[in-house]
């Protein structure tokens, strides 16, 4: 049961009082409210109170840091608090579900990475599709990397793939978990190149790095930051990125272009989404503020320090990116035999 009523408290500022019995009923209530509130009045005052910025990742990860730096810059611009709330769990799908189901008034927005939007839907039963949220913008990407032990007899991507193709080749690589973006990124390349490597799933890139450095798996597969210092210290030989282009943080490492496999590119990227029915003026305000913030020197520096590449896209372009990636990764997951599993 949902009781919703509203009244004009101050001229030009509407507010409402609500009693929601269950969280997912909020969506219905909210769409009722959204229809009745004059959206012009809302835009003039937005944001009139603190905005919740939901991050479906744990505190301290790359996604969380980007969200916090962005929030700080946007706060100064819009003169309102953006409170970062970490809602991690189920590969980010838990928090994403909350963002999508939130009241579309612009006071709940979500800062996400691509995995819960384009990867998880292939292995988990999620309650959203690209039609149930709206992408506001995206900030850029970071590629995954495959590294071998320092003594591995290959010096570039070509030789690496050649070694994997050898008839007696029998190697293991660590990844971030089955059905995760990293695994799909790696398998997509292996498939295109026609090689087979035994995947060993770990709890995250840090754990993979630890097991790779200890010699328990042959190759490291994961994001750049955990392996970067070890590559610099000569403890790892990084041979192939999952992006088409090279990365300035690892200038010696080939991108997929070196193998003419540009089309198999899978990267990790970040962006802002809101529930579908957010009023247009609010959407515009958010898009403008976050695109400006992402272009600031302060944010550029934060991106560079994490080895990420700045590439700011607006809502429309981000939405297109999500849809293409969702389809492409769906095909990889299907060919790997990953299916939606029910208990």
């Amino acid at each position: 049961m949902v009781i919703t009523w509203q009244r004009e408290a101050l001229p030009g500022r509407s507010w409402e009082v609500r009693l929601s019995v269950a969280r997912h009923f909020r969506l219905i209530a909210a769409s009722l409210v959204a229809c009745s509130i004059s959206s012009i009045a809302l835009a003039q005052s937005y944001p009139a109170r603190p905005v919740s910025l939901i991050v479906p990742a744990p505190t301290g990860g790359g996604t969380d840091v980007f969200a916090r730096v962005l929030a700080e810059i946007v706060e100064g611009d819009l003169k309102q608090k953006f409170v970062v709330e970490n809602r991690s769990g189920a590969g980010g799908t838990l928090g994403t579900t909350q963002i999508v189901a939130a009241k579309p008034d612009g006071y709940t927005v979500g800062f996400i990475w691509n995995s819960p939007l384009t990867t998880s839907p292939h292995s988990l039963n999620v309650a959203y599709t690209p039609d149930s949220y709206r992408a506001v913008m995206s900030i850029g990407f970071s590629s995954y990397v495959l590294c071998a032990q320092p003594g591995f007899p290959a010096k570039d991507a070509q030789e690496f793939i050649a070694k994997l193709k050898a008839p007696d080749a029998k190697y293991t690589y660590g990844n971030d978990g089955i059905g995760g973006t990293m695994q799909l990124a790696a398998e997509r390349i292996f498939q295109s190149a026609g090689v087979k490597v035994r995947g060993i799933p770990f709890g995250g890139a840090g754990e993979t790095a630890k097991n790779f450095l200890g010699g328990h798996v042959d190759f490291y597969g994961g994001s750049l930051p955990p392996i970067l210092p070890h590559a610099q210290a000569g403890k790892a030989k990084c041979l192939l990125l999952t992006s088409a282009a090279k990365n300035p943080a690892l200038p010696e490492t080939d991108g997929l272009s070196a193998l003419a496999l540009d089309k198999a590119e899978t990267v990790l990227w970040w962006g802002l989404i809101v529930p579908k029915d957010v009023p247009e003026p609010v959407f515009e305000t958010l898009q403008k503020a976050f695109i400006t913030a992402a272009g600031s020197e302060k944010f550029k520096a934060a991106m560079a320090k994490q080895g990420a590449t700045l590439r700011v896209l607006d809502g429309k372009a981000t939405d297109a990116l999500i849809r293409t990636e969702l389809t492409a990764l769906g095909e990889v997951a299907k060919s790997l035999g990953i299916q939606k599993k029910t208990p």
């Binding site: 507010w15 009082v17 609500r18 009693l19 109170r49 919740s52 409170v83 709330e85």
Partner: peptide, 16 residues
């Protein structure tokens, strides 16, 4: 402590 607690009816009237 910055913990988000559910507002509910009374909280909305008093604090929002």
């Amino acid at each position: 402590l910055g913990v988000g607690l559910p507002y509910g009816l009374i909280g909305e009237i008093l604090f929002r």
